[in-house]
Each structure stands twice: as structure tokens, then as C-alpha cells.
Amino acid sequence: MLIWSRSARWPIWALFAAVFLVIVAAPLAVLVAAALATEWNDVLPGGFTVAHLGSALTGENQASLLVSLQTAAVAGLAAVAVGTWAALALAAAPRWLRKGADGLLHLPVAIPSVVVGLGLLVAYSRPPLLLNGTRWIVLIAHLVLVLSFSYATVSSALTRIDDSYAQVAASLGARPALVLWRVRLPMLLPAMSAAAALAVALSMGEVGATIMVYPPDWRTLPVTVFTLTDRGRTFDAAAATLILLGATLVALLILGRVSRGRTTTGVSP
């Protein structure tokens, strides 16, 4: 469309391929290879083994994986619930409140995750609420960090849904609660599941806040990966990261399946 002659496209494609390889493909390929490598002191790994993957699925690493999955599930669910609630409530709120609260709800994007963690440490290591040292502080940190994204996803979907659906439902005799339950929430379900997927993906990979607040008995997989790297066990770290990616992918697939099974919504034009 831009370049009309076929011969002129080749150099562009070649450049694209080169950059793509270095920037996108190589890091991923190297990570997979490292997860399976016995040793790596040359251009190519010295040999292959599944031992690292095995160790990533046992003992402490396995425990971390479970912690990560539970954290992502709880934080994701809570974030979608709070985010959806906020989106729906603010849509009906007066303009000044909507603008102010919208800015506030997007704020966690701008706050460094490390600072979110530090803030929770400072605030909840003292009365009235002592959460430092419990798993709750990790869950709260994750909730705060993914809330913006789930709120943004749901509220932007909400603005695309015409008011007339709710109006027509009301005209047919549905009380506001019924309109919410039978019309608005079902129509938002695709956005809510997208928000959940995003929240889970972000939560599974979170390090900044977690590393500030985690108690010994609630260590997420990314933190474990960091301790492994720190101790020089980089192959184990690569394997654990690969497991983390795999688990995230499976979680996202399940979420996608759930949302597609529940509804076949495509908002009619």
C-alpha cells in the first residue's frame, strides 16, 4: 500500500526481520533454551535437560507457583469486582465526581510499584491495622496495582454500550437491580473477562511491590525467580520463569473459555 514495487519491499522486510529477531524473538528463544540447558558457556547451550523444569515444579518453587496462582486469582477477582463496581457507579455519578474519581482510579498506573509496596509497609506496620507479615498485604498490593487496568477496561466498554439498552429494559418494567443483573452485567461480561485476563497476567508477573512486602510464607514465583538469579542459579530461574509463563497462559485460556462459554456476545451493530 505504501511501497508499490515488490522489489523495494524486500529491503524493508529484511530490516524488519532483523530487528524483530533481535528484539522480540531472540529473548524468548534464549529463555526457552536456557530453561532446558545443562550448561551455557558458548554460543549454544552445552546440552539439554528437563531437570530444571522438574525442580521448578517441586518443593519451594512449586509452593511459589501456587502462591502466585492464588494471589492472581484473588487479586484479579477483587480487581474486576471493584473495577466494575466503580465503572458502573461512576457512569451514573455527577460529572465532578466522575472526573475526579476517574483520575484517582487511574493513579496506580503512575505510582511506581515499589512505592505502592513501601506505602503499604509504612501504613500497615502500625495500628490500627497490622497487616505487615501477613499474606493480605501481598494481596492488597496486587489489587491496587491491577485495579486501574480492570477499571479502565470495563469503563471503556461501558461507554461503548448505548444507554438505550438500559432504558428499553426499564421501559419494559425492569427495576434498576434487574436491569443491572439481566442487561448491563451480561453485556459487560466480555469486558470483565478481558479485565480479569489482564489482571491475572499482570499479577502473575508482579515483582516491585511484592518484593517490598512479602512475608516468608507467601512468596510469589517472580520473587523466587529473583532469589534464584541472585544466588546464581540462572538456569533454574529460567525454568521457573518458563513455568510462570505457562501457568499464566493456561489461566488466560481458561478465562477465555469461561467467558466464551457463558456468552456469545457480540454487541449488535
Partner: peptide, 16 residues
Amino acid sequence: PLLWALPPLVVLAGFL
């Protein structure tokens, strides 16, 4: 509408 908007804002206020 003001009351309904309160719970998510309380969450944000308390935790952020």
C-alpha cells in the same frame, strides 16, 4: 449515585 460510588473509592483511599 454518590453512595454507590463510595465503596470502590474507599478501597482506593485505604490502600493507596
